[in-house]
Amino acid sequence: MKHILKPRKTTFIFILLILSFSVNAQWNIPDYAKNTKLPTEPTYKLTETGKQLFIKNCIQCHGLPGEGKNNTAINAPDLGTADYQSKHNAGQFYYQFNEGMGFMPSFKDKLNKDDKWSITFYVKSFDKGFKITGEKIKAENCVIDFKTEDSARTLIATANIIDKNGISKPAEGVEINFFVKRIFGNLPIGETVITDQNGTAVFKFPDNIPGDENGKIKIIAKFKDSDAYGTAMKSAELNWGTHLHFVNPVLERTLWGPNNRVPLWLLLSFLIVTGSVWLTIFYVVFQITQIKKAGK
């Protein structure tokens, strides 16, 4: 696969290079941008949202900040480097990514103001001098749970964050996925649900998931963003699956089965044919011993 794609990739990069030379523009950030006032306090919660938005919108060219997976062919910088961070404060970054230039598209109309600031906070979180307030969510402090409402096949999931005093607080806006345990891994089912301000989310379990002979099924709930909330999971065995009517083909009389389950027609044919041939042979052999008698 790799060697098939290579020539195409090189041509693509080549064309981009020509384009970038022809564009040959310089960032021209006005001075006022530097002094832009932050609309809100940057919090950890906002940087988390920013990260998700960054992954959706920016990662193709820039890579995750600090990882060096940026596309140099179009001069897309790694936004996590100390060099970049020292030259661009939050306002300057916001300006750049709001206006765009050359290969950098403008996000003026693509994202709303809050989202754009979330991304800005996320990128600036790689600057050690940039202050972020609020509580940093630690993955190991998140717990997940769910209870069932049997009649309606409804799952009510709860996500909680336990703070440093050991007090559990509901986590709002956390995405939760549900799975069903299968032989090879977990099968995702339904859409992702998001917790409300009480930290709960309601999930309607579909009624067509195959279970075992008794309809038993193992349901698993996990945080979608395991980076932020950890790999905590909750599982429960319920009989919400459809009942499986499994007929093991190995137990039938088949051509591919073992010898004690040979198809009857084959067994009979084999026995009748070989039996009658060998009976005839034994008859003839017996008659040969009677030759002497016939001579008397």
Partner: peptide, 14 residues
């Protein structure tokens, strides 16, 4: 020889 003596019956049987 199986006791073959050349009898007609024996020829017939064989």
């Amino acid at each position: 020889s199986f006791g073959f003596k050349g009898h007609t019956e024996q020829y017939k049987l064989i």
